[in-house]
Design a protein around this nucleic acid. Structure first.
Length: 817
DNA sequence: AGCACGCCGACT
DNA sequence: GTCGGCGTGCTC
């Protein structure tokens, strides 16, 4: 007698034991179940429910000893053959489980939150009867009766406190008084922002929390703040008071506030955008279009670099190219960096493709994201535009994939699976025989290298839009400024230029590198700088809420009145945007300075609103971090100032030069987009640094020449790949021991490797401790090949299973930074 | 990682 | 004599 067996990638299987597990398909599901559908299966000794995805189905003589699939979670496959293949590819390349990859590929709205519940199967008396003999079981019965006979595992754990409820549950289950059920419910996830609204008159609310002000200070502070505001996002409440989500939740339970779903990213209305005729192209653009279109129609997949200086009209080429793809019945995808996905950009595309567009963005509300995903899958939308994760969008007949600003770091995921959208895009284009277009004014060194080597096709746009000259750039030596007694953030020259702009009624953009934008406090007496108790970083001061905060773990505390160590007076150090703003207001009294950084960008004051305010010309100066450098086209901006160019230059990673060059080039290009010629001022402590000089001249060619030589010399990408293995755990010695062991195992295995390699470490990570976990890393530089990936995968799994490594987690990352 | 099975000390 | 401590070993 034959039976159907499903190979399933299981969610609860961690990396070390991740493999396809065989499950019997019950007769009732035999006709319905297909590969790519998610299922609910029992897993582990406790047969707890786990979700999984069917990788394959096959006939087998007997299914002896196999467990059976509990239920199908989908009506239709959520991944096709290519999708499943890609998940397997991601596992090998990014050292994640197959299901981790699957989760990254599916929209959050489709994600099932699995809840284990304990359900009483007997009535009140019988249940009590059965629980006789175990105090804990009796307590559990009482708890469950209060909750109408059923309770979630989380609730029960909370109710039991430090005691483990598992034995009590087993006790009842064995006696047939209860059962464990796993329910799959579409989870909304915590991605969407919750809006807290005061649920009663403020006097009443305050009366409720005031008596316990001493014992529950956070509840008090949150309520107090909410009374003032009436409504605020839960995130903001936490930010300003230092509370965390449980506090808010408990206030909700007490009926003091209610939580409502709020859309983080308002779905941009694209219905009312008037259609536009196709853009006219100049000769260069036309040549690029024709070349790209030829590649797109070719039998074989290809990669092309569209290298065009800022303002050379890459977008027009994209639009024409997409139109031709649509005319042939294909579909296309445009990926942009996180910060570049603005309503303006969406409108440009909507003007040409209208309802054919689906927008996929990680901060879209889960429901809408799911809708857009479905529109793409059904073929209703044939142009997907989105950020990193949109690379997985279920488009059919994909024939063109555009990665704009391909050098941007936001294409690399910093969480499991640590994929790079460029790599995934490349893989996908090969799978589906599509053309991959990498667009950039400052391509990643690896990309340009491939283009020069003839691996990628290259198309170049050299002419700036309406033939505008590049801005005049001045480099200011801040050492010189210091010698002349100006220790402020704004040099004499920059101040004069700003002054000129003010009198002329023209606008100025000032950029502060994020790394330098943090502001710390330091004791004037003993020099102490308050540090995060859980992480090895200094706390940074946020004036918006008057607190010292940790950017790594979210810890925060009110700014102390005096030094906690010696009682001395605290001074502010570091040049933050706030500090520059103050300095500007001093120098130019009465002039409005718009500030844009992660502090000022909140639910109420979005990115877009600030930019709109600036665009309308109300404020003469816009000051901000990286976000001001990207894709802003303002007619009236004639001056760009880089307050401090050095910060990103002296990081200890090989991409520092490339990133600095790209950032400076982009921001300098922001000056003079309109009729008037622009100027730029770059302030730096290292005015002779080549990267800064090349960027000032917008000279990518020489920057590239120098950088590629350096990379060759140092054996960095593209000549080799970098694998970083990071171990983290609560005890430093254990983590270190784990790394040393890993290193030894690696060295042994690498000895037989038939290619060059170099192994560094263990060394503490740049931030050695995060959330009370110490982090050490090994760095292996060698050419990325299957052998190395398999070796590393094996070693990570091994480390995971090592008894000595309890509590330590190890992960691998390919070409991080 | 979880979770069960299994073998030793503090209580009814 | 049992409840419950945490030391090994497996997960279809």
């Amino acid at each position: 007698m034959g039976c159907v067996v499903a190979k399933v990638a299981v969610s609860k299987a961690v990396y070390a034991i991740d493999k396809p597990y065989d499950y019997l398909v019950p007769a009732a599901l035999e006709d319905r179940l297909r590969p790519g559908m998610r299922v609910l299966v029992p897993f582990g000794a406790g047969n707890r429910g786990s979700d999984g995805i069917v990788l394959a189905l096959h006939q087998q003589e007997s299914g002896g000893g196999l467990k059976a699939v509990t239920a199908a979670l989908d009506e239709e496959p959520v991944l096709d053959r290519h999708g499943l293949q890609m998940a397997l590819w991601m596992r090998e390349r990014y050292f994640c489980t197959v299901y981790d990859a699957v989760k990254a590929m599916l929209p959050a709205g489709l994600y099932y939150a699995l809840r284990d519940c304990v359900k009483l199967t007997a009535d009140r008396e019988v249940a009590y009867e059965a629980s006789q003999g175990s105090v804990a079981a009796t307590k559990l019965v009482e708890m469950l009766l209060v909750w109408d006979g059923q309770g979630e595992m989380e609730q029960i754990r909370a109710g039991f406190g430090p005691k483990d409820p598992a034995p009590a549950i087993r006790y009842l289950v064995e006696r047939g008084a209860a059962e464990i059920v796993t329910s799959a419910q579409r989870g909304v996830g915590d991605k969407t922002e919750k809006l807290a609204v005061l649920a009663m008159p403020s006097e009443e609310a305050m009366a409720l929390v005031t008596p316990r002000r001493k014992t529950a200070p956070l509840r008090y502070s949150v309520t107090e703040l909410l009374c003032q505001l009436g409504a605020a996002s839960a995130k903001e409440l936490c930010y300003f008071t230092g509370a965390s989500m449980p506090t808010i939740k408990s206030l909700e339970k007490s009926g003091i506030l209610t939580l409502e779903q709020q859309e983080v990213f308002r779905r941009v209305q694209l219905d009312d955008v008037p259609p536009k005729p196709l853009p006219q192209l100049n000769e260069e653009q036309q040549a690029a279009l024709e070349g790209l279109d030829r590649l797109c129609r070719a039998e074989k997949p290809a990669v092309a670099l569209l290298y065009g200086v800022t303002g050379s009209g890459k977008t027009q080429v994209y639009i024409r190219l997409i139109q031709q793809v649509l005319d042939r019945g294909g579909s296309a995808m445009v990926l942009v960096p996180e910060i570049a996905l603005t309503p303006q950009l969406l409108r440009v595309f909507a003007a040409h493709f209208g309802q054919e567009i689906a927008v996929l963005h990680s901060s879209l509300p889960a429901g809408e994201r799911y809708d857009e995903w479905k529109r793409a899958r059904s073929g209703k939308a044939r142009v997907v535009i989105g950020t990193r994760s949109a690379v997985f969008a279920p488009l059919r007949n994909l024939s063109l994939l555009i990665l704009d600003e391909e050098q941007e770091g936001s294409y690399k995921s910093e969480n499991t699976p640590r994929y790079h959208a460029r790599d995934v895009a490349k893989y996908r284009c090969v799978q589906e025989n599509a053309l991959l277009v990498l667009g950039s004014a400052t391509p990643a060194v690896e990309t340009m290298y491939s283009a020069r080597e003839g691996v990628y096709h290259q198309f170049t746009l050299t002419q700036r839009y309406n033939q505008k000259a590049l801005p005049q750039v001045h480099i200011v030596d801040l050492k010189e400024e210091l010698r002349e007694g100006n220790g402020g953030a704004i040099s004499g020259l920059l101040a004069r230029e700003i002054g000129d702009n003010l009198t002329r009624g023209e606008q100025t953009i000032l950029l502060l590198n994020r790394r330098g934008a943090s502001r710390m406090v330091s004791c004037g007496e003993c020099g102490e700088v308050p540090q995060c108790p859980r992480c090895s970083v200094k706390l940074t001061y946020h004036s918006a809420n008057g607190r010292l905060m940790c950017h790594y773990c979210g810890f925060s505390q009110p700014l102390p009145h005096a030094c906690p160590a010696c009682g001395g007076k605290l001074n502010f150090i570091g040049v933050g945007t706030q500090r520059v703003q103050e300095e500007l207001e001093e120098r130019f009294p009465g002039v409005e300075v718009l500030r844009m950084d992660s502090d000022t960008v909140t639910a109420a004051h979005s990115h877009e609103k600030i930019l709109e305010q600036f665009r309308s010309g109300k404020a003469p100066i816009l000051l901000g971090t990286q976000m001001v450098a990207k894709g802003l086209d303002f007619e009236n901006v004639t001056l760009v100032g880089v307050v401090l160019a050095d910060q990103s230059l002296f990081m200890d990673d090989f991409r520092a030069g490339e990133r600095t060059f790209s950032l400076l080039t982009q921001v300098v290009g922001r000056a003079g987009r309109g009729e008037k010629t622009g100027r730029a001022v770059i302030q730096t402590f290292t005015p002779d640094h080549d990267v800064i000089r090349f960027a000032a001249r917008q000279d990518y060619e020489h920057f590239y020449q120098q950088e590629i030589q350096l990379r060759r010399l140092r054996r960095e990408p593209p000549f080799r790949d970098v694998f970083v293995l990071t171990a983290s755990g609560p005890e430093e010695t254990g983590v270190l021991r784990c790394c040393v062991k890993l290193r030894q195992a690696l060295e042994g295995a690498l000895a037989h490797l038939n290619q060059e390699w170099e192994l560094l470490g263990p060394a503490p990570a740049a931030v050695a401790k995060v959330n009370n976990r110490y982090r050490y890393r090994l760095t292996l530089s060698t050419k990325n090949c299957r052998g190395v990936r398999e070796l590393l995968g094996r070693l990570i799994a091994q480390a995971h299973q090592d008894r000595e490594n309890r509590g330590i987690s190890v992960y691998g990352d390919l070409n991080p930074y």
